[in-house]
């Protein structure tokens, strides 16, 4: 046998290569079976990044369905409330490219909270049915009100209101939430600003 191989180097090479191929093939096949990934934990991680406003602007009924869609390969730039920061976080998690927000799905806005002008409310409960997080309190024929701390600012309640008594108000800044902003470094070409030295009124 060995003699034969020595005499026919071509055969030896062929055998060696086929042998190697067989061994590595077996190894790969085993690994494919042994280390199969179970389930899809990525959905949970994506869902944790999404802002949970449940606003439906992404075209999915709620944040979790969108998280599932992203895991299945959908674009990550469909969430206006998450904004650019959210897109970046998703891009990092999924190792995808950072893309600008798709404005077919709306624009990034400052955080808002719904406000019911209570003397105009007729108590129709339509907004209560629309609210995805049960943040509106009220009963039929009784004035409703928004529990501001629970409101996600999704503005789904605005449209159903028959008397247009719901406004979206930007979340007010308080002493507790106020803070210094990062110095602006975006316009370094045009004019150079050291700090956000602004002028108070």
């Amino acid at each position: 046998m060995i003699e034969l191989l020595v005499q026919h180097p071509l055969l030896a090479a062929l055998l060696a290569l086929v042998g190697l191929g067989a061994v590595f093939g077996a190894l790969l096949g085993y690994a494919a079976v042994r280390f199969r990934t179970e389930g899809n934990p990525i959905v949970e991680q994506i869902n944790a990044i999404l802002p949970q406003t449940q606003c439906g602007q992404c075209g999915h009924p709620g944040c979790r369905p969108y998280a599932e869609a992203i895991a299945a390969g959908e674009d990550i730039n469909k969430c206006p409330p998450g904004g650019q920061a959210g897109i970046e976080a998703l891009a990092q998690l999924l190792d995808r490219e950072v893309v600008p927000l798709d404005d077919e799905h709306g624009e990034e806005k400052v955080p808002q909270v719904a406000f019911i002008r209570e003397d105009e409310c007729i108590g129709c409960t339509k907004c209560i049915q629309a609210c995805p997080v049960d943040a509106i309190l009220g009963a039929a024929k009784h004035m409703h009100t928004v529990i501001a701390s629970e409101c996600t600012g999704c503005d789904l309640c605005v449209e159903p209101c028959p008397v247009d008594c719901i406004d979206m108000i930007p979340q007010a800044q308080t002493l507790q939430t106020w803070h210094w902003e990062l110095p602006d470094t975006s316009n370094r070409g045009a004019d150079i600003i050291a700090t956000d030295a602004g002028e108070a009124a």
Partner: peptide, 10 residues
């Protein structure tokens, strides 16, 4: 159109 792809979640 901006915001044209919205759906209702409720």
């Amino acid at each position: 159109v901006k915001g044209s792809k919205r759906v209702r979640v409720t």
